[in-house]
Computed example of a mutant assay.
Amino acid sequence: MSMDYVRKTYSVPAKRGGRVEYTGGPPRLGTITGTRSGRLLIRLDGERHSSPFHPTWELRYLDQGGGQDG
C-alpha cells in the first residue's frame, strides 16, 4: 500500500523523508522511509534499519513541508 493510501486512510501528513517523534516510551526521533502493508516504515535515529509503525499510534509528525510523495 502506498504513502498516498496511508495519508488518505489515516488523515496524516506522512511523506517519505518526513520527520516524526515516536512517543511510546522515551521520545525518539526518526525518518519515514516508506510503507509496508498500511504501516509506515520509520528509521529511528541511531538505528540501521527501518521498523513498521502504525500511522496514528504514538507518532507525532514534526515537519509537513519536507520529504517526498511516495
Rank of each mutant, 00 (worst) to 15 (best):
T56L: 13
R7P: 02
R48S: 09
I42Y: 02
G17V: 03
R28P: 02
G67C: 01
R19I: 04
G25W: 04
L29G: 09
R16L: 03
D63H: 15
I32W: 04
T33P: 00
T35Q: 01
H54V: 04
Q64N: 12
R60H: 10
R60D: 06
R43Q: 05
Y22E: 12
G66K: 07
Y61I: 07
R36M: 12
G34W: 06
A14P: 04
L41V: 12
T33N: 03
R7E: 08
L59H: 06
T23M: 13
V20A: 09
H54W: 08
G65L: 10
D4G: 01
E47L: 09
D63Y: 14
G66C: 11
Y22C: 02
G17M: 08
G18C: 00
L44V: 02
G38W: 05
Y22W: 15
T9K: 09
L41T: 05
S51E: 11
K8N: 11
D45A: 05
D4Q: 06
S37R: 11
S51F: 14
T33M: 13
Y5V: 09
I42G: 00
M3T: 03
S11A: 15
D4H: 03
L40W: 05
R19L: 05
Q64D: 10
R36H: 12
T35K: 00
Q64E: 13
R19M: 09
G34I: 02
R39V: 08
E58N: 15
R39M: 15
F53T: 01
P26E: 14
R48V: 02
V12C: 06
I32T: 06
V6T: 04
E58Q: 15
S50H: 06
Y5F: 13
D63K: 13
V12P: 02
H49Q: 14
H54A: 14
G66H: 05
M1F: 14
G24D: 13
T35P: 06
Y22V: 06
G34V: 07
G70N: 01
P13E: 11
R19A: 06
H49K: 14
G70P: 00
A14K: 00
R19E: 13
Y22I: 02
I42E: 02
A14D: 03
L40N: 01
R36V: 15
R48C: 12
Y10R: 00
G38A: 07
R28N: 08
V20R: 00
P27L: 04
Y22N: 11
K8R: 14
S37V: 08
G65M: 07
L41K: 11
R16P: 01
V12H: 01
R43L: 05
H49V: 11
Q64W: 12
R60W: 10
Y5C: 01
I42V: 14
G46K: 08
L29N: 11
G18W: 05
L40D: 07
E47Y: 09
T56P: 00
T31Q: 11
K15G: 00
G67D: 05
L59E: 04
L41W: 08
G65T: 06
I32S: 01
G67E: 04
V12N: 03
V20P: 00
R19P: 07
P55L: 08
R60A: 12
S37I: 03
Q68K: 08
S2A: 10
L29S: 13
P27W: 07
W57Y: 15
P26C: 10
Q68S: 12
H49W: 14
T56S: 13
I42L: 09
L44Q: 01
P26M: 13
P55H: 08
V12K: 02
L44W: 08
L59W: 02
S51G: 05
K15C: 03
